[in-house]
Each structure stands twice: as C-alpha cells, then as structure tokens.
Nucleic acid binder design. Structure first.
Lengths: 228, 228
DNA sequence: TCGCTCCTGACGGAAACTGACAGTCCAGTT
DNA sequence: AACTGGACTGTCAGTTTCCGTCAGGAGCGA
C-alpha cells in the first residue's frame, strides 16, 4: 500500500473513533511500524488536521478537518445556491472557483433529496456587466491578513498617485468594485475603485490596528449598517 | 505538493464539476502528467471512490465517497459569506432569513479560526436599489414545486391581463426581479417583471413537464449558458 | 475512418519512505 | 520517588515509490 493510501486510511481510522487511539494500535491496524505512524501523523497535521496526542492516552482527531453532514430546508438551499451563483458571476477567477468548490462540497454532504434540489434550483443571478476580469485575489489577501498595501491610484482626472493604505473591505457593486481603506497619507478613510488601482504591493508587516475594529469604525463613519 | 494532498485535490476537482472531465484537463490543472492522473484515479477508486471513466468523455465522480470533503478554506469561506450577503440584500424577507440561517449552520461546524474569518469577512455586497420589498416566496414555492400559476400582469402600458404560466426560474437583477415561465396562452417562453405581477394564484396541480427540462430548453432558447 | 479519450505496460533516475535503534519527555499511578 | 504507558525525535542505510516519457491497445460517436 502506498503512503498516500495509508494516510487516508489513517485519517479514517482516527475519524472512526471518538476515544484516543495509541500509535501502537494504529501501527498494528495499518501494518507499519510505530515510527511510521508518528511520521504520518506529522504529515496529516501539516495538512491541517487537528490531531492531538497526549502521552499515556493516544491520538484523537478534533472535528473541523472534514465537512460534517449538513441539513438545510428548501429555502435555505435556495439562498445558498443563489448566493454562490452571485459570487460566481461577480467575483474574480479565484472567488468563482471557490464558489464552485463550496457548492460541490455542500452538495456532497447533503442527503440525496436535497442534493437534487440544490442541483436544480430555479433562482438565477444576473451576470455582472461588464463581466469582471481583474484578479482581486491580492487585494482580498491583503484584507484577510491585515497587511499594509502600497498602491498606485489614478483619480477621476487620470492623475496617478502613490499611497500606503490599510485595506479594510471590498464592496461588490453592480458595475464596479470598491476597496475601502484607511489612508496613511490622509489619515482618514478613503475609497478606491479597483479598476483605477494601477498596481498594488502587499507589505511585509501588518497594519497596527485590528481590521475588525477598523471595519466597525468605517461603518459608523460612512453610516453603513451591519450586514447579516 | 505531496501525493496525498494531490489525491484530495483531484477528488475535489472531480467533485466540482458535474460534467465529465478529461484526464488531460485534470493533468493541466494539477500540474502533473496524464499518466499520473490515471495512476491517481486508480488509487482513489481503490480507496472506494465511485469514479467512472468513459472513453471519449472523461471522468465523473458519483457522490458518496466514504471520506467527506475537506473543510472550507479561506477563499471558500469568503465566497460563501459574500454570497449569503448578496442574498440577504437582494432576496425577500424569507430568503433573507434563510441566508442568515445558512450562515449560522455553517458557522456552527467551522473550527474556531475559520469561524472568526467568517464573522469578520471583509467582502461586502452592495445593497439593491430600490430595496426589495415584495414577498416572492409564493413565486419561489411555485417554481420549486412545479405548479401552474395564474397571474394578473400589467404590461408596459399598464394594461392588465390574466394568464396561466409554468414558472421556471426567477432571476435577480440589480434593480428588478424577473420570472421566467412557459406561457400556456402564448405557447412560448415569457418573462415577467415581479413588480408588475399584480396577483398570483398557485394552482393545485403541477404542470405536466419537469422543470429541469424546461429550464434547459429555456436556456437554449434565450442563449443563457449554464451557471456554475 | 477519424478523433477523442480511457487505459495499460515498461523503464530508469530521483526522491521519498521505512524500520531499527536509541533516546527524551510527559502525565498519571503506585 | 519510582514506575508505566505512550508520545515524540534524530539518524542512517537500504528499499520503494513516484513520475514523466514512450509505445501502444481499445471503446465510442461522428
């Protein structure tokens, strides 16, 4: 048996039980040495599995590595599918792919009857015009990781300028996308149309305040109520 | 990338699509040779994945692999949350509530780190103008359950007429919502702005054709490609 | 027939894997 | 304080596996 296969088996062996299992036991079950089990566990943890080992007890896999079964009603399925279709039509390529992945994953853990409903949902999203082309994944990553961003930006008259900003949020409108940020130069909140951002360099260090807080401040500043 | 990782990626690449995918395509996507794809497929099948390959077409994965999909990644969380925000701002009250419920259910199964990301996602949906007010849940229910619908409809000049239609889909545009249907009177596909539908009565019997088929026909008729 | 694609076998160099051993560390238990 | 079960680490040398390449077979629809 190849290592890759064994890793999947090991994962299943851990998933199967709720009590801790010793490496020795896993070794017997998978027919390899304990040393190999230790190595495999390291690999799985490296892939993101929350496996906890406690001396004297054994290993246990905390939930959250795989998607558990989910249950939704008809309305919820429709909301979910419609939402993902919106994203598929309005997001950049990476977001579009992610939306497809989410739908596939959720559909997979749905009971059969619901799965069919998800596949045949009659709610459609209108396409964005013009169709989105720019890759916003860098901007999104900067927002996620709270990183400073140096951008070259063209204002309405076409004059370019450079500034350092703290990106807070990205808003998806019908015809444009707007980056909301704290501008270091101006010491104030500023908005940038993504189609006028000529270049963007993600800094090495994160900005000094938590985005969660900035977002709340920005909301108050702009009078935008909480979503959700 | 390790082979184990690639196997999971391959599984997800198959899950993502509902149509068959050729080995060549998968090879490009995963950046390995076709031969490797064939070997990986063999391995996955050996682990119990129901992957069917047909010459001239490609591979397709039937649902129900013992190993459920992996947990959402950062991009997927962003796509999911953004999508639900779109729905919350564009759907009727019932859909808005459903979107909130979906988010709650999904958040519930997320591990802590991801949950925080979902709560603080920086991607925002623009509100619909004018804000949606009409309750479309009857229309949605008629679509879901493939029921005949008797509507009173005002045309562009304000003249009201009554007709019986087979509702197929509901499309969400920036400023309006459009019901796509087969019109019994005209014996053709017709579109109805929801804000001009004066009343709608759901019939007791379902219409004689499957919505799935009608939807595909309508797509061809209007030149609207598959979403996803 | 052609074109597309699945599918299999063989080869060989590079890379990864594995068992064995020898220990360390850790947390209950006696 | 010693004991015990078991997690965990480092090293090393011999296997194994992996993977791209090439060469071909076979099914199926146009």
């Amino acid at each position: 048996m190849s290592r890759a296969e064994r890793l999947l088996d090991l994962l299943q062996a851990l998933r199967r039980r709720r009590r801790p299992v010793s490496a020795a036991r896993l070794a017997t079950e998978l027919d390899v040495s304990e040393r190999t089990i230790y190595r495999d566990i390291t690999t799985l943890v490296g892939q993101g599995a929350a496996i906890e080992g406690e001396a004297g007890l054994g290993y246990i896999l905390r939930p959250g590595f795989t998607l558990p079964p989910l249950m939704f009603n008809d309305e919820e399925i429709e909301a979910l599918v419609l939402g993902l279709r919106f994203v598929a039509l309005r997001g950049d390529a990476a977001l579009r792919a992610a939306a497809a992945d989410v739908l596939a994953k959720v559909t997979d853990v749905l009971p059969g009857a619901l799965r069919e409903k998800a596949d045949n949902s009659g709610l459609l999203a209108a396409p964005m015009v013009p169709a989105p082309v720019a890759d916003l994944s860098d901007l999104r990553r900067a927002i996620r990781s709270e990183r400073r961003l140096s951008i070259a930006y063209a204002d309405a008259d076409g004059r370019a300028s450079t500034r350092t900003i703290w990106p807070i949020a990205l808003a998806f409108f019908q015809t444009k996308r707007i980056l909301a940020a704290w501008c270091e130069t101006r010491q104030d909140f500023r908005h940038f149309r993504t189609d006028r951002i000529l270049s963007a360099d993600i800094g090495d260090e994160s900005y000094p305040r938590r985005r969660r807080v900035l977002l709340a401040e920005w909301r108050r500043h702009e009078g935008i109520p909480e979503q959700d």
